[in-house]
Simulated scan of single mutants.
Amino acid sequence: MGGSNGFGRTSGTPGGVSSGPAAPKSRPNRYYGTATLDATRVGRDAGRIAEEVIAHLSGLVGATVTVTLEIQASVPDGVPENVIRTVTENGRTLKFTTQGFEEG
């Protein structure tokens, strides 16, 4: 029954004022999200994110979805040389775009 719709306009029912067709509302066209995963359960957590977020976005027509994995590790006593070699080589083999060790 003709009344306000909460946006300062009244409905097009008898007694109300109609202002013609509404302009199409623009919709968001970008998404971003960051999650911290449990290092002991990365596979499980990443799998859930893939199923519950990424799949919905990548299924949209024309969507381009980029997923970036960022790893940060802090080792108070320092990283042993053999681990530095192993991690660096594995990162290279896995085609990491950036990687490195530093003193801090």
Rank of each mutant, 00 (worst) to 15 (best):
residue 23 A to Q: 09
residue 104 G to Y: 05
residue 56 H to P: 02
residue 81 E to M: 11
residue 49 I to C: 07
residue 7 F to V: 13
residue 28 P to R: 11
residue 10 T to K: 01
residue 44 R to I: 15
residue 67 V to P: 02
residue 69 L to G: 11
residue 28 P to C: 03
residue 24 P to C: 00
residue 52 E to P: 04
residue 36 T to D: 09
residue 40 T to I: 00
residue 44 R to Y: 13
residue 36 T to L: 12
residue 73 A to E: 15
residue 74 S to Q: 14
residue 17 V to M: 15
residue 78 G to H: 03
residue 13 T to C: 09
residue 6 G to N: 02
residue 83 V to T: 09
residue 85 R to H: 12
residue 16 G to D: 04
residue 41 R to E: 07
residue 93 T to I: 11
residue 6 G to K: 03
residue 92 R to Y: 10
residue 104 G to R: 09
residue 14 P to N: 01
residue 70 E to W: 09
residue 41 R to F: 04
residue 94 L to Y: 14
residue 67 V to H: 09
residue 17 V to H: 14
residue 61 V to A: 12
residue 58 S to L: 13
residue 71 I to V: 15
residue 2 G to D: 03
residue 18 S to C: 13
residue 86 T to C: 10
residue 85 R to S: 13
residue 68 T to N: 12
residue 2 G to H: 00
residue 21 P to G: 05
residue 66 T to W: 00
residue 81 E to C: 07
residue 76 P to S: 04
residue 52 E to F: 04
residue 68 T to D: 15
residue 47 G to W: 05
residue 58 S to A: 10
residue 64 T to E: 15
residue 57 L to A: 00
residue 101 F to L: 01
residue 63 A to N: 03
residue 39 A to V: 14
residue 30 R to S: 08
residue 36 T to C: 06
residue 72 Q to W: 15
residue 3 G to N: 00
residue 51 E to N: 13
residue 13 T to Y: 09
residue 2 G to K: 00
residue 24 P to T: 02
residue 8 G to R: 05
residue 73 A to V: 14
residue 92 R to H: 13
residue 32 Y to N: 06
residue 94 L to S: 10
residue 1 M to V: 03
residue 93 T to H: 11
residue 93 T to D: 08
residue 83 V to W: 06
residue 11 S to Q: 03
residue 72 Q to N: 15
residue 54 I to G: 02
residue 94 L to G: 06
residue 42 V to D: 05
residue 3 G to S: 00
residue 23 A to T: 10
residue 98 T to M: 12
residue 33 G to I: 05
residue 57 L to C: 02
residue 56 H to G: 06
residue 4 S to A: 00
residue 6 G to D: 04
residue 52 E to I: 03
residue 8 G to W: 02
